[in-house]
Amino acid sequence: MDNDTTSGLVSHYRRIWLYLFVVAALFFLILPILIVIPMSFSDSRFLDFPPDSWSLRWYRQYLTTPEWIDATFVTLQVSFFACLLSTPLGVAAAYGIHVSGWPLMKRIQVLLLLPLMVPHIIIAIGLFFVLANLHLINTLTGLIVANTMLTLPFVLVTTLAGLRNFDMNQEKVARSLGYNRFWAFILVTLPQIKGSVVSGMLFAFIIAVDEVIVALFISGGLNTTLTKIMFTALRDEIDPTIAAISSILIVTSLVVGFAASFVNRDRRQ
């Protein structure tokens, strides 16, 4: 292992300070997130750490407040349908962009990545107007179409990465053997890029769950999302219930994130 420093010019011992710095930086990245979880089990209103006494009261508070539970269902529905819609749209677009050698397609790809680049506050106020004209403010439909648009780039990018590692000749063979293009894609290509597609879909789901700014403007009433309620509550006071919800969200993103990288392993090999 001694030759693993930059070309073995400096011994590991001599750059121990560098390693210490990096370990400190890595803990700086992870600790603030992990510390929320024990705090959410605190019995006190003030979220001290380490908690003096433990309890599940903030979880109970979350589960027994209709406002929180309703919002959770809104978020789950919106995220589920948004990733269900953005996945086929993103996969179809990725296939078109990948297969066609037309230079124009590069431009189209950039256009489809715009939701990643435009600041969300701009999307939010613009979308508010468009959805207001369509009478879709404070509706599930409005939230679903907005999140479909916002999550589309994630499916597009992961699927494109999968297609780049796939040998399109296999699909050509299937077609020359008599399958039409659609079935050749479904039966030959899709099974081999499914890791990328599923991981794109999982990311789309988690992005939709976490989306705040657009939801602040276009969700409300019976269809308020979880993150909107969290945000408004946070601005006013430190409600410990949010620590419990945050812990649930952290665990959810961890599970979904690891699942996404697990299913996506096939293309890294």
Partner: peptide, 24 residues
Amino acid sequence: KMFGLTVPALVMVTLFLGVPVAWL
């Protein structure tokens, strides 16, 4: 044909990103 496959995604982005920005 390949362009056609990108159309649904383009419509989504145009309607819910392009139109809002144009309106602003």
